[in-house]
């Protein structure tokens, strides 16, 4: 897979159209890496000249910040901003709503101002510019329900871009009982991903998965690698792997036409 880094671009004296911020999950988590690759395929298909930071990328600091470690967060932020500013980055796309939120909302006052887009927003803009086409392909007619990631939805008010993309697949988009502004969290945010949950009578991801199962959808579409993991685990704990799949919106589009 051809994935140019900023360092390589710089050496060739080129500036990419957009920086793809891969994020920690997208770089290291086996499930999330598939999302990363799906997005790369779509960017290639739309002839977007992009680059990644590669080994120069580091955690945005989101989980540290939400865990209460503002020091570590700001250390990460300042380091990343130095790299981004050195490459004169103007526009960033990322497939992780946590990276998206942090880069977009929390970096500016520390000296890092960029145009930041979630991949569903970016893909939608490519679609509107006619650079990308979306066909139903193998998902045509399937029932799909979309789980709103908290950091995309409530945190930043983005509810429609992912839904618009899904509709383009000629599928039946069904909503869960709790969706959009009232969407239920998958249970991963606020650094919960990295710890055992507190004592209770159920896990949040199981509760959310039950809501998804109620819709009798074939696929749960997600827009966040952490939601993806949580929902996949939820489906497993309900032993419904054979009935319902969990896929990122980018994967849906890329797989629809077997990219």
């Amino acid at each position: 897979m051809k994935v140019p880094t900023m360092a390589e671009m710089m050496a060739e004296g080129k500036q990419p159209e957009v920086l793809f911020w891969v994020g920690c999950a997208g770089s290291f988590d086996d499930r999330a890496k598939k999302i990363t690759k799906a997005l790369v395929k779509l960017l290639d298909k739309a002839n977007v000249e992009f680059a990644v930071l590669g080994t120069e990328e580091s955690c945005t600091g989101d989980p540290a910040k939400r865990a209460g470690n503002e020091f570590l967060f700001q250390m990460q932020a300042v380091t990343n901003i130095e790299v981004l500013n050195a490459y004169e980055i103007k526009k960033i796309v990322t497939a992780c709503p946590h990276c998206f939120n942090t880069l977009k909302n929390e970096y500016p006052s520390l000296g890092g101002s960029y145009e930041v887009m979630h991949h569903t927003q970016f893909l939608k803009s490519l679609l509107e510019e006619g650079r990308l086409s979306i066909e139903g392909g193998k998902f045509k007619g399937k029932r799909i329900t979309y789980h709103d990631p908290c950091y995309l939805g409530r945190a930043n008010g983005i509810y429609e871009a992912p839904r618009d993309l899904i509709r383009k697949l000629d599928v039946e988009l069904v909503e869960m009982r709790k969706c959009k502004k009232a969407g239920l969290c998958c249970g991963a945010g606020g650094a919960q991903m990295f710890k055992e949950p507190e004592k209770g009578d159920k896990d949040v991801n199981v509760e959310r998965t039950e809501q998804a199962l109620e819709t009798r959808a074939d696929i749960i579409a997600a827009g966040c690698p952490f939601c993806n993991t949580m929902m996949t685990d939820g489906v497993k704990s309900k032993e419904k792997e054979s009935e319902i799949a969990v896929m990122d919106v980018a994967e849906l589009i890329a797989n629809a036409e077997d990219l």
Binding site: C24, S27, F28, D29, E57, S58, C59, G61, P63, A64, A67, N69, L72, M75, Q76, A191, M193, F194, K195
Partner: peptide, 12 residues
């Protein structure tokens, strides 16, 4: 998680 970020730039 935080030690990992500090040392490796990722929570893992």
């Amino acid at each position: 998680m935080m030690t990992n970020i500090e040392n490796n730039g990722a929570p893992w």
